[in-house]
Each structure stands twice: as structure tokens, then as C-alpha cells.
Design a protein around this nucleic acid. Structure first.
Lengths: 344, 344
DNA sequence: TTTATAATTGCAATCGATTGCCTAAAATAT
DNA sequence: ATATTTTAGGCAATCGATTGCAATTATAAA
């Protein structure tokens, strides 16, 4: 095994009898260098198999063209799509993408953020963990003048860029759709109210009911039905009521909606005739259940791209002080069989 | 906005009237430093909000505790799970994870790999793009003495660490299962044969047929049925044969299997009685189709962990020269309704 | 008390690329 | 022919942390 030491600009300089600074200028396409010299350097660099040492360059330049991402789980449909969209943009700009997952734990989130700060990344993109905790670590990011973009799940108090889905609107439209389909007792499966996304969806639900003259009934709002299992349990309870709902809006996730679907199917309840079901997120599987599930698409890949563009836009045009802006991505209702009981 | 300059070890040294080297020793927990001094430095560092500059440290130490990952698509179930598993390990070791996606394009793969080489990462983990191309970029990684771990889709000629699924075995077991269920004319949906994973699955299919005295019929092997759409098309063709298959093994993916399922259902063919269907990958949706789809689990999260462990193991115990090892992850057949026509 | 040894700490070079400043040569203007 | 401006390229400092070596002090041994 030939341990082939890395070629540096000094090696190139020596070979060509130049100063390292000239080599550097040639490689960085500076205009303070003769065209012929530049060409010669470029040619020699290629021959010598030169690859820039990014660490040295970044150190000197005092910045690291890298964006750090911290999400609860990388392998969750929504997040992996956001990351894919973001990568699309960062790659074009020659930026690197460093990824951490918090596993919904606050301590891990803090560790991840600190590691990124150490790396002196130029931006940290985060969707916070469900576990509650202080936001000192995020405040530190700001204090260190590193751009911070929160998305989806955000901390309210911090003055940062935010990219959000309009959860209120998504939920509102879903409920309006249910009303239009003739459902009259629409139940809500809620998520943990610590996360604003779930509060907003609840608001949308309530607003839609209010706007259409429907009563908001506490007995139809079921807390913490976050997973498929919890969704299933909630459904059992709701359907056992003396006056059960005729539609269930699983505002937490499509997984909860799937739980609803399974329980209702097992009970022999006809969907969508006797029970309407609507989920949230447009997970791929919602299309292939029987019946297919009405849900809300969050444009996750788009969201990732929006985040990336926002970063570069802000870098180019404004100083960090202007960075207290919120971009909303509008979700879209995807109507499928589980709520379609009127003919189109 | 207070542009708060980063605290360096020099700032700490100055404040405490020490040399920077002593501060460095205290922070790195060297044994060449007095315990009291160390404590004082640590305390002061915390007060001054010190965060190490990883770029400077890495430059000096000549290594970057980072693993780079290049995959075709981040937001594909299999890959996002591998990455999640890998992150689990790297995080524990304090390593960073940098991600690139090739989008199945060779040129982008090369670019991504080069960017990682520039970063001087200590390991590159890659699953190659479907698009064909030279593997010079990978050879360069080796020449530069950077560890290279290929997984899932690998280039044969290169002497690198590899983490693979035993695709042959997975396919073999699936076909044996189909035979045991009484299926007699088992068709195969093949993937692009440039990728060895698809060649191996085909081998497994053929071997199982041979071992059980079944003929291998070219007319039952359908090339390039990679996606749901292609799987659907293949199914139409196969079922229109004068002597159609009674089972279809979609060795390419569960998506292809889904295409099979939809076409067969629409034709009113009863599954699993008249047609058995088996996919590959254990995508989440296979559990919730009707009927649920028999498939092969690749233990993707485990695979990611295996990759991570392999890296650190090799680092600890061997020099890079020993790094020509292949680790196989054994897949597991998940039997579901789409192939169960005998009572258990 | 003197010498040998160990424990601390400081000094300065180093990792590799970038960049402000300066000089020499070449090009242009007077 | 002389003065002025450009252009090209070199020198050396710098980014921030690490580390081999030397220097100093404290401790132990003789």
C-alpha cells in the first residue's frame, strides 16, 4: 500500500518554481495572475492529482460552506424528503450537508447543535425534538452569528428565519371538505400540544367548525393520538360513544389515520359512507390503502428547497440582522376515497 | 446585533496569563497539565463560552472525524434507514456525517466523492449510482488512503470493505417459499443487470428452481421491471401469455410488486389463490396492501450500524491494508398474505 | 545539601491555503 | 526619453489548535 502523501500547493509551487501564493491565485481563478501561468498551474495540479484541503481553506477564510441539519429522525418520510430537497440546492452551490438526528431527545439535539457550531457551519437548519427543553443552544447559535433556520417544528420565542407549513390552513381545508361531504360529527385526533404544529391544526379544525356553524365538542377531541396504535385506541373509544362521530380527522399523521382505518374496517363500518377519515402528511401508503386515504400534502421536498434558497438569498442580499422572516409553504388537500361520499 | 467574535484558546490564555499550549492541554485532557490549572481553564472556558474550532483542530491533526455518505437518493426508504443506522453509530463516536445524493447520475457521484475527499473525511460510504461510469473516483479515494466502504450496490473490481445483503439467499428463499406454497410457474421481474444486486437475485431465483427440479424458462423472466409502472406493464404481458405464470417474484422492489398487485386485482385475478406475489425490501406499505405483500426484509437500519461498526473496528485494530473484507447481512423472508395459499 | 527525576509550563513550528502589502517589470501616457 | 500606471508575482502574516522540545520548578533520592 503506497501511502501517497497529499499534494499541496507548495508541491506545485516547487515544481513550477513559483510562490505558493501564485498557485493559490491560479487555482482560485484570481485576476491577479497571468493567463498562461494560470493555465500551467491548472495543468500541473491536475497531473499531480491535487485536491484542495478544504479544512485549511475554510480555516483561513473563516467560514465553512456547510449547512448542518438537525431533525428528530432522518428516516421519516417528511424529514428525509426535506433533506433531499435541501441537498438539491446545497449541492448546486457547492455546499456540504451535515446531518444529525435528535431521536426526539433534547440532550441529543443540544449535542448535535454544538457539534455543528464547532464546525463553524454557515447555517443550521433544525426541526426541534418533541422532548421539551431550554433553547439556550439555539440562542447560542444566533449569538455566534451563525444563521439559524427553523422549519416545521419551531421554538416560538426565537428571532430566526422560519419555514413553516400553514398547518392551520391545511387543517381548515380538510375540515371544510369533510363538512361539504356532509359529515356532521367530525372528531379530531390531536398531537402533543407542546408542538405548535399540532396546536395550529387544532385551531384550523375549530375555525372551520365555527365558520360553518358547527359546535365544537370537547368529547370529539381526542388528545395525544400520535401513532398508529394510539390512533386505533382513540378510534375504539370514539366509536363506542353513544353518539359516535361520522368522521375522524387524524390531524397528527397518516399513521394515526391508518389506525383509524383498521379499527373501523374491523368493526365492519363502511368507509366513507358511515365514517370519513382524513390524515395528514400524504405518506406514500395513503394512496394504496383500501380505501385510499384523504390527506394533506406538505410539499416536503419543496420545503427543503425553500430552506436552501432562503439561506443563499439571505446570505446574498441581507445581513443577518434582517433574518427574522417567516416563509410559509401552503399545504394542499389531497382528496381520496376515504372521504368521498358524494359523487363528484 | 452584537457580532460576538469567537473565543479562542488565546483569549483564555491571555485572561489566565497562561500559554495557549497549556490551555490546549487542559481542554484536551492531557496528563501533562496540573489538575488545578486544568480545572481553572475548564471553568474559564465555560464562562467565556468557548467552543473549539474544529477546522483548526482537524487541520493540525491532519484528520477529520467525519464520514461521508453518497447514495442515489436520501429519501428512499432503504437508504434513509441505512443512514439513520449509521448516524446512530457515528454520533456515539463523535463523528460527523456528511451526505450527498447522486440522483443515480455518475457525474454527480464523482462530484460528491471529490467534495468528500477535499474534506479529508476519514471514510467514504457509498452505494453507487445506477448510471454506468468509470470507477476512477473511487480508486482515487483508496490511493489517498481514505477508507472506502461500499454497500448494497458495489463495484466489483475494487478492493474495498463491503457491506452487502445476501441477495442470492434472499431471492432463493423467496422462490423456495413460493414452490412450497405449490406455485409451479414462477415468473421473475428483473432489475438492470449492470447492478450486481439484481444479478444475484436472479441467480438465487435460478438456483432455487434448479434445486427443486423446476425448469428455468426464459419466457418467464422479464427484464427491467424496476418501477411500479414497469412492474404493471410486465404483469399485463405475462398474464396475457397462453400459459401465464401462477406466481410473480418482483425481485426488483416492492414497488414493482405493487404494480403487479394492482394489475392482477383489476383483472379480477384472486391473490394468492390464482397468483402469488412476492416483492423485495419490506417497504412499509407492503404490510397494508390488500392482500399484504410477502417480501424480503433487508435490515436496513442494521446495515447502517454494521457499516459504522466496521469503520471503527477497522480503524482500531488493523491498518488500512487489511481492509478488503466483505460483511454480509442476511435478509429475511417476511411471509404475508399475497403468497399464503396453504393453511399454516 | 546536592543531584537526579518528575511534573508543569512556555516557546515556536506546524498543518495548508489565503491575502494584504510590496517590488520589479512591463505597458502606457506625457 | 521620462514619468506614470498596470500587471504579475513574491513575501510573510494569518486563521486556531496541537505538539516536540526546552526551560523551569517541585519533588524525591542520595
Amino acid at each position: 500500500m503506497k501511502r501517497q502523501k497529499r499534494t499541496t500547493i507548495y508541491d506545485i509551487a516547487q515544481k513550477l518554481n513559483l510562490a505558493a501564493s501564485s498557485v493559490s491565485r491560479a487555482l482560485s481563478d484570481s485576476n491577479k495572475i497571468n493567463a498562461e501561468t494560470k493555465a500551467l498551474v491548472l495543468k500541473t495540479a491536475a497531473e499531480m492529482n491535487y485536491q484542495q484541503n478544504a479544512m485549511a481553506s475554510n480555516l483561513r477564510k473563516g467560514n465553512n460552506p456547510t449547512i448542518g441539519v438537525v431533525v428528530p429522525r432522518i428516516n421519516q418520510y417528511f424529514f428525509s424528503n426535506v433533506i433531499a430537497g435541501l441537498e438539491e440546492i446545497t449541492f448546486k452551490k457547492g455546499y456540504n450537508l451535515v446531518i444529525c438526528q435528535s431521536n426526539e431527545l433534547h440532550a441529543r439535539e443540544v449535542e448535535g447543535v454544538n457539534a455543528l457550531v464547532n464546525q463553524n457551519v454557515s447555517c443550521i437548519v433544525i426541526s426541534i425534538a418533541a422532548e421539551k427543553g431550554s433553547s439556550d443552544h439555539l440562542q447560542q447559535v444566533l449569538d455566534r452569528n451563525i444563521q439559524l433556520i427553523q422549519f416545521d417544528r419551531v421554538v416560538a420565542g426565537l428571532e430566526t428565519l422560519k419555514v413553516l407549513n400553514d398547518n392551520r390552513k391545511g387543517a381548515y381545508e380538510a375540515v371544510v371538505h369533510l363538512i361539504e361531504q356532509g359529515y356532521r360529527r367530525i372528531a379530531l385526533l390531536e398531537g402533543p400540544q407542546e408542538l405548535h404544529i399540532f396546536r395550529e391544526r387544532k385551531e384550523g379544525y375549530i375555525a372551520a367548525l365555527n365558520d360553518h356553524g358547527f359546535p365544537v365538542l370537547p368529547e370529539l377531541m381526542y388528545a395525544n393520538a400520535w401513532t398508529k396504535e394510539l390512533g386505533a385506541e382513540a378510534t375504539s373509544r370514539l366509536l363506542d360513544m353513544q353518539d359516535p362521530p361520522d368522521a375522524i380527522f387524524a390531524s397528527t399523521s397518516d399513521f394515526a389515520a391508518l389506525g383509524v382505518l383498521e379499527v373501523a374496517s374491523n368493526k365492519g363500518i363502511r368507509i366513507p359512507e358511515a365514517l370519513g377519515i382524513c390524515g395528514y402528511s400524504n405518506e406514500p401508503f395513503t394512496e394504496i390503502t383500501s380505501p385510499s386515504i384523504t390527506t394533506i400534502d406538505q410539499f416536503s421536498v419543496e420545503m427543503g428547497k425553500t430552506i436552501g434558497n432562503l439561506h443563499f438569498q439571505e446570505m446574498d442580499h441581507f445581513g443577518p440582522k434582517d433574518s427574522i422572516k417567516t416563509v410559509n409553504v401552503t399545504p394542499k388537500l389531497i382528496v381520496r376515497k376515504s372521504t368521498q361520499r358524494k359523487q363528484q
